[in-house]
Design a protein around this nucleic acid. Structure first.
Lengths: 202, 202
DNA sequence: CCTACCGATCGGTAGG
DNA sequence: CCTACCGATCGGTAGG
């Protein structure tokens, strides 16, 4: 994280919890682990936070909201279908790279949410995927894309995007926008060189 | 799983543990949860298994071995570089789809391995990734692929492959070989239709 | 394979 | 923010 100053106590707790949840997983992270990282006792955390799960909820729903806001923006733009897909890949990449730890927790630990929350979360996740598939559908209808199983294609792209947190290093040569552009280029155009006269078979 | 008969007690324990580790995560699965699924008491499991972690170790290293065996086979084949990449995508897909639960555990829970084992595991994982990058390198040198950051490309492909367990349904219309071929086609060739005269820019 | 149990650790609270 | 503590649950064992 770039700025560790100017954080409220509550924000510092959430920041350190995010890092621990990512490293050890939610279930294997104890409030005593978290307290040690913060230089305090476990009981003291509860002055700022209602429960361990409350922290997880904030992380998961903050990320879910960021993803769906960006998707809505792109949907409402007047880009071409293929332009929308490229744009959403870039925006999704930027959200992930902005906070890799929170993205990893969002992606790997949401299953530990309890009953009313996990249903809300899955609903948001499903809605996001459906809208994503819809953008692929539009691209196929506008003849930009090969005709394939569009859900299959959507899941392929989402898997590639949601794996970013496992290898992206902020110190690397590419900034988030560039990473997103490169991903969009490879996913949409493929990694194979295009030849002058080819037919897309084999 | 297709065949649940003819399993030793130990195999039944590992099978149910794999499913639970996938659903709830390793840390959140108790030996009492597992015992309940098996219709026995927690203490009884220890007649067949040394520890909870031993089960995780078997799952993780079995999958790791399957992946690296397939990779070695493909490396030693006399396929072209691009043929090798296509083949390894298909073989990787087949290993994952053959046991989705074990794949999910392999991918999400290895961080709970303890000290000597986690180092061995990470070594195998790194070796696999390096060999994968090497196949991309060869394809670029043989002029089949666009010149890009090859590690970047490798991680994109591996992310896409390792996301399969999150959406693949064995009841679906495509069998594993077909899923692998479709993935290879989309990753290598891209999702965009190829036009007669294009230059790969924009 | 079960009963009965161990010490350790968990999330969380009361009272200051 | 700490001390001192609660009941619950954990992985694992002994003895049958």
């Amino acid at each position: 994280m770039l700025v560790k100053d100017n954080l409220t106590r509550k924000e510092r707790i959430e920041l350190k919890a995010t890092e621990l949840f990512r490293e050890k997983g939610y279930a294997a992270t104890s409030m005593r682990d978290l307290a040690a990282k913060l230089g305090m006792e476990a009981g003291s955390i509860y002055s700022h936070v209602r429960s361990k799960e409350e922290i997880l909820q904030k992380i998961c729903f903050r990320m879910a909201n960021e993803f769906s806001e960006k998707l809505t923006e792109v949907e409402n733009s007047n880009l071409s279908p293929i332009g929308k897909l490229k744009r959403i890949i870039i925006e999704h990449t930027k959200v992930i790279t902005k906070d890799i730890s929170a993205s990893a927790v969002f992606w790997n630990e949401w299953k530990h949410l309890s009953k009313p929350f996990i249903d809300d979360f899955q609903l948001m996740k499903n809605t996001y995927e459906e809208k994503f598939i819809d953008i692929i559908d539009q691209s196929v209808k506008s003849k930009d894309f090969k005709k394939t199983d569009n859900k299959f294609t959507a899941m392929l792209i989402l898997s590639a995007l949601n794996g970013i947190h496992q290898w992206y290093k902020p110190e690397g040569p590419m900034n988030p926008e560039e990473v997103g552009e490169q991903l969009a280029e490879l996913l949409i155009g493929g990694i194979k060189k295009k030849l002058k006269h080819n037919n897309s078979k084999h």
